[in-house]
Structure formats: C-alpha cells, structure tokens
Amino acid sequence: MVTSFDDFTDTLFADKSVLTERHQPDEILERDDEIEQYHYALRDILFGRDPENIMLYGKAGLGKTAVTNYMMAELQEAVAERPAADDLYVHQINCNGMTLYQTLRYLVNDLLPPNASEFPKRGLGVTDAFEELYDQLNQRGGTHLLVFDEIDHLDDVDTLLYELPRAPSNGKLTDAKVGVIGISNNYTFRKSLSSKVRDTLMETEISFGSYDAEELRTILSDRAERAFVEGTCDEAAIAKAAALAARDMGNARQAIDMLRVGAEVAEENGDLQVTDAHISDAQERVRRGRLQNRIRDQTQHAQYVLETIALLEQRDRAPTRSKEIKEHYEGVAESWASDPLTTLKSIQDHLADLHMLGFLTRHDKNDGLSGGQHYEYELDLDADLVLETRQTIEGADIR
C-alpha cells in the first residue's frame, strides 16, 4: 500500500535520543571541578554519618541536573560496597509550579509502603504533611537525600529549608538521616532566604559557570559520534553550533538543540550531510523554541505577569510601573479563572525575578519630589512570542 510517508527512506540519525534533553550521558564531560566538589560534599554518607546539605547554582543547560543524576547513581553503587554506610534512598522532585504541601505530599507518597493509601491531596495542612514525612522516614530508616530541582520556584521555600535541617535536633527524625540537595537557576537564590534559614542550612555551594566554545565542542563531538550515521555530520557544523551557543548563553542544551535541529533542516532539504549552513538555519528555530520553553517553565502567576506586560506593549503602554502592571494583571488572572495575587509586593517580587532571568528590562526612574524614585518595566523579548506561547499553554485565544 502506498502512503504519504513512503519518501522517508533514509535518515542522518543513528540514535536521535542522544540529542534530546531526556538523555542521561554515561560520562559527564567538562564538569570535573564540579564533580570533585560534589564528591567531597557527599563523602560522609560512605561512613554512615549525617549528609551535608548541598545547593547547586547556575543557569539552565549548564549540567546541574545531569551531574546530580550521575552523582546519585555513582553514590548508590559506592554505598552498596561500604559496610559502614546506611541504606541510601534518593527522592527527586521538580518544584516548578509546586506548592510546599504538594512537595511534601510527593515525598510522603514516595516513602509509603506499596499497599498503603496515598496521602490526601486536600483536607490536611503543611504541619500534617511534615509530621507524616518524618514518620515515614523514621519507619524506613537509613539515609535519605531529598533532591529539589528548580527549588527557587517553590512557594514557602523558607519553611522547607528551615524545618528539614532542624528535624533531628527537634526530635522529629530519630531513625533516619536526611540531606537536602537544592538545584537553582537563580544565582541570588540564597540571598532571598531568611537569615534564620541561611544559618540553619549550612550548605555546601557548587556553582556551575557557562561553557566556553571548546568545552561545548567536546560535548557535541561526543554526542555526534553516537547520534549520527558515520560521515553525515561535518566538523564545521559541530564547531558552528558550539561557537553560537558559547557566544549566546554558554548553554550545552542550546548547543545540542542546534545540532539536532540543524540535522532536521538537512533532512528536510534532502541533504546527505549536516553542515554549518544548516546550523545557521537552525539558530532562529532553536532561539524561539528555547524562549517558549523558558516561558512555560515559569510559575502560573509569573506567566500572567509576562502576558500582562505583553498586552500592555501591544497597546503602547510599556515601559510601565508595577502599580499599573498589577491592575491589568488582576484582569488577566481572572480571565483564566484564577485568583490573582493580592499584594503589590507579590507582583514586584515576580517582576524582580523575571528581570533577573532576562525576560524584562527594568528602567530606574526618578520623578523628583512629585513622583519619587521607581522602576518601570518592559519585555526584553518579542510580545507576540509571549502571547503565542501563552495561547498554546492555555489552549485558547488571548485577547
């Protein structure tokens, strides 16, 4: 039977999954210093001692999660060979869009015996969830590493990072040891924590810097060797993707995406080899795709704030002050059947975060005695792209 797919008989890819975000490499390249710091921070677990708390900082795509996954697998293998080490359990959760209660509920359910009823979604409070978490940890025993990816997106993170480290001294954890590993895209996350949390946490900090072009080229060459049919990816394509990504964000994920999309462009054109010209064609597709993903990664109300400013820009009302943004934001939130945040401070906090992440440009204004000093905000990306992305997320037309 003849189908419309019959023309697709050849492919440049030997294993396309190697160039996707979900791929976990067997070996981590160009992160030797960070891995060495990680090794040292985890060493106490091998001797049955309390684990250290660890915080990883760095922008998206710099290997924080990949290195953590690698280290957890290596540690579990090492613990199995160490008589002094307790049984080790690793619990990983992405905090993006999560409340503190949902996070605690996830951990409790991860610890419950197979036939036990799940911890309820509603009807109980955060205190109840903490108590159940401690109960389940004590029943299981051993050492537990709680890995919170995108921890800076978690609401009420101060409570989480204050309660968990203090649980042993408060008599809540008697038969289990717990270490917190936080992964944050925000280099200033620690400064946002209360002083009592910073004093309690006493964490090891590991900072992930941007990759340079040579480091990205090493990573891409390794991926390309497994991803492509032999002889179908030109070295110039790898060098181009590495150079463009290094010049932009120093982001491995961006470089890998450019190589994959470049190969897709080559296949669409019927070309037999990926070249630097294909990478150039792929650059804009990847840029738009990454911006859309970054918008999706923001919390619900941060997205409402972005949508608000995009709408104001379309009406030539930006840059504008946080008070006006709040007024229009309330209408946006209500239009999506969501209760808006009620305080100006909460909107200003979102604006500060979005500016720090590069979504917004902030202008320092001084109107003298009549108006005082204040900030005005506008998008640092295309308003149409923001609204297109929001439309996709909500599955409806945006006004």
Rank of each mutant, 00 (worst) to 15 (best):
D276E: 14
Q348S: 09
H355Q: 15
V286G: 09
E307R: 06
A282L: 02
K345H: 10
S335V: 06
G289R: 10
S280I: 08
L351V: 06
D276I: 05
R285Q: 12
A302D: 10
D281Q: 14
L341Q: 10
K323F: 07
V286T: 08
L344N: 08
M356P: 00
Y304F: 15
I279T: 03
L351K: 07
H328G: 00
H328L: 07
Q348T: 11
L306A: 07
W336K: 11
D276S: 15
T308R: 02
R317L: 13
R294C: 02
D281T: 08
H278T: 01
L291R: 14
V332A: 09
M356F: 14
T342H: 06
R288W: 04
Q348N: 14
D353R: 10
R315H: 10
I309F: 02
Q292G: 07
Y304M: 08
R317T: 03
H278W: 01
R285L: 13
K345R: 15
W336N: 10
E330F: 00
L354Y: 08
R290E: 14
I325C: 03
Q283T: 09
D297N: 12
I295G: 03
R294I: 01
Y329W: 03
S338H: 11
S280Q: 12
D281C: 00
D281P: 00
L312E: 05
T342E: 10
A318Y: 08
T342Q: 11
L354M: 13
Q298L: 14
